[in-house]
Design a protein around this nucleic acid. Structure first.
Lengths: 144, 144
DNA sequence: GTAATACAATTGACTAGTCAACTATTGTTT
DNA sequence: AAACAATAGTTGACTAGTCAATTGTATTAC
């Protein structure tokens, strides 16, 4: 590892821009924010969850979770109820409306990501996945 | 390109988290935000620039540029003066204080990025750089 | 069984970005 | 020369995240 520090910084600056672009355009295309999409998707595949559990999957701040859920609840995409066994917890469930919204944006979502990676080979994607995962593991270990 | 869309989405979600972590911890470590560091660094290497030119290098919104410069100016890291040849433009210059701040955080910056990539081979980094650049080019072409 | 502690969620104040509306200056048309 | 358009910067209102303080509930210790 003797790569120049400048180049590494440059990689991060590019990542920053990519993240912004993707986040912004995912919502424009599908009509739902990437984070809220992921919340619904998580609730669909994992079933009902407490907010803490959602937070652990999404890895964003609790406060952000609360606020996103408020929006999703207003649109009737999720239902929130206190856990009778433990009144501290809020149990979050996706509604049928929520499920159909997920289904609706499915095509757009696929197209979006396909276009984004249309000039990538399967090898490229595998590689990228591997490297990004490694980087993610580093950040998680470093910053605790 | 027949990778599952889920995996691609997952790559982006990881990128999101990495970006947040890096941004946050860069500032904790060096005492200056990554974006403002990059502004100073750009001014150091390219010389004095108008805000539009800075915006083109940094690729963030004009409004964000204005606000970051306000902070850097308050700390006397930059000086801003109207261009006499074209009074619409503001010419931004790094000060000696600014330069010394850049120098001061250099070691921290190097350590930070080195730690982040300590288990990456030179090959890995080259690869990552290549793939990220490709992705960046895609976003820039797609979203205009 | 009460006091202290821990936990889940919420709220407020903050940062960094976006877009859109505005101001001031410059350049162009006629 | 006056009107209009384009450009550079600023400001306000918004989004999505952060952290810290608060509230309410459950658990533990004595």
């Amino acid at each position: 590892m003797q790569q120049s520090c400048e180049e590494i910084k440059h990689i991060f600056l590019m990542l920053k821009n990519i993240d912004r672009q993707v986040t912004q355009n995912f919502e424009k295309r599908t009509g739902i924010s990437l984070t809220r999409y992921e919340m619904l998707h998580t609730l669909l595949t994992k079933g009902q969850l407490s907010q803490i559990e959602l937070q652990q999957f999404l890895k964003i701040d609790q406060a952000a979770i609360t606020r996103h859920l408020k929006i999703l609840e207003e649109k009737s995409f999720v239902i929130r109820t206190r856990n009778k066994q433990n009144n501290r917890e809020v149990i979050v469930q996706i509604t049928d409306t929520g499920k159909s919204v997920l289904g609706d944006c499915d095509l757009d979502r696929k197209q979006f990501f396909d276009e984004m990676f249309n000039n990538f080979t399967d090898q490229d994607i595998k590689h990228l996945q591997l490297l990004v995962r490694k980087l993610k593991d580093n950040t998680e270990l470093k910053f605790i």
